[in-house]
């Protein structure tokens, strides 16, 4: 079937088996490989995207149901060469190692900060508890995002 979606503000049409995951279609058919397949069960968050205003695992979204959907992927978070504040914060705090989980963290953290610019450390922790990182032990990610929340607090 042909599905037309609005991805990162741009209308895109794609031919896909309707049962395929949005993740597969983004990654393999639409040239947007930033969203990552790591578990395909909704148990790691590496494929997180924002669908409308909802943070979801794109591996669990059936593309056949996505006609007309508005999707924000990791590729749509930065403004050109300007990193989004959550990206800048994770970059500066050394919150990236292998980086395979990073797109999911960026999308989930952006969604969090869009809805709550000043989350507490434990709120950040719970909000990102669906994103598994195997490299960092989460410490550097937390330090980056806590400092971003502190910046929000000062404003």
């Amino acid at each position: 079937m042909i599905v037309t979606l609005k991805i990162n503000g741009e209308e895109r049409s794609v031919s896909a088996a309707g049962w395929e995951s949005l993740l597969n279609v983004l990654h393999d058919d639409l040239g947007l490989p930033g969203s990552k397949a790591a578990c395909e069960q909704g148990e790691c968050g590496s494929c997180s995207v924002i669908l409308g205003d909802t943070l979801v695992c794109s591996c669990l979204v059936m593309v056949g149901s996505c006609e007309g959907a508005d999707v924000t992927t990791v590729e749509g978070i930065a403004d050109g060469d300007d990193l989004h504040p959550v990206q800048q914060a994770m970059y500066e705090s050394a919150g990236v190692q292998c980086g395979f989980c990073t797109p999911g963290f960026v999308v989930a953290a952006k969604h969090l900060f869009d809805h709550n610019p000043t989350p507490s450390a434990i709120d950040i922790t719970e909000a990102l508890s669906g994103n598994i990182c195997r490299c960092t032990g989460y410490g550097a990610i937390l330090r980056g995002l806590v400092s971003l929340a502190d910046d929000g607090e000062r404003e």
Binding site: G45, T54, L55, L60, L128, G130
Partner: peptide, 9 residues
């Protein structure tokens, strides 16, 4: 239930 992503869907 699951994760925030799962709970949203």
């Amino acid at each position: 239930v699951g994760s925030p992503q799962i709970r949203a869907a």
